[in-house]
Simulated assay, not measured.
Amino acid sequence: MSHVPSRTFSGERFRVLRKSAGYTETSLSAVIGINRVTINAWARGVVSPSLKSVLVLADVLGCRIDDLFVEVDRVA
């Protein structure tokens, strides 16, 4: 078996980027049209956003899509 690098959405990075862009969960919710509870679930890592939502987040937060992800090792 070998380790295969992979990327996954990071709730921690999302939370940091959201705060540094000056958004609360509620204000970001109003801007992107996603329920605040869903945004909170993203930040806690309970669920990951869709590709469409990731594209919107990167645009609104002024970051690269890659900034919202972290590398993880997967066994192949």
Rank of each mutant, 00 (worst) to 15 (best):
S20E: 15
R13L: 10
F14H: 03
S27A: 12
T26A: 13
P49I: 01
V31Y: 11
V46R: 00
F9I: 06
V16R: 08
R18N: 09
L28A: 03
V47H: 08
P5S: 14
R13K: 15
N35D: 11
G33L: 08
V4A: 06
P5K: 15
I34L: 10
I32L: 07
F9N: 02
T26W: 09
R13V: 02
L51D: 13
E25T: 13
V4Q: 12
P5R: 15
V37E: 01
P5L: 15
Y23H: 08
V47G: 05
T26Y: 11
S20N: 15
V37F: 01
N40W: 08
R7Q: 14
G45T: 05
E12L: 12
T38G: 06
I32N: 07
I34K: 05
G11L: 03
P49L: 02
F9V: 05
T24F: 06
G33E: 08
L17Y: 13
A30T: 10
R44T: 07
R15D: 08
T38S: 12
S20D: 15
K19M: 14
S29N: 03
T8D: 10
S10F: 05
R15N: 09
V46F: 01
G33K: 06
A30R: 14
E25H: 12
T38F: 04
V37R: 01
S20K: 15
F14Y: 04
A43Y: 00
N35M: 05
L28K: 02
Y23G: 02
F9D: 04
L17V: 07
I34D: 03
S48F: 00
T26F: 09
L17F: 13
A41S: 08
S48I: 01
E25I: 15
G33Y: 04
S20R: 15
F14K: 03
N40C: 11
I34G: 02
S20T: 15
S10T: 05
V4W: 09
E25Y: 10
A41C: 07
N40S: 14
R18V: 03
G45K: 03
A21E: 09
I32G: 02
S27P: 11
W42V: 00
L17I: 08
G11R: 04
V16P: 01
R36E: 05
I34M: 07
R13W: 06
L51M: 12
S27Q: 10
R36S: 04
S6K: 13
N40P: 02
R7T: 14
V16Y: 02
I39R: 01
V47W: 04
V47T: 14
T24R: 08
V37A: 03
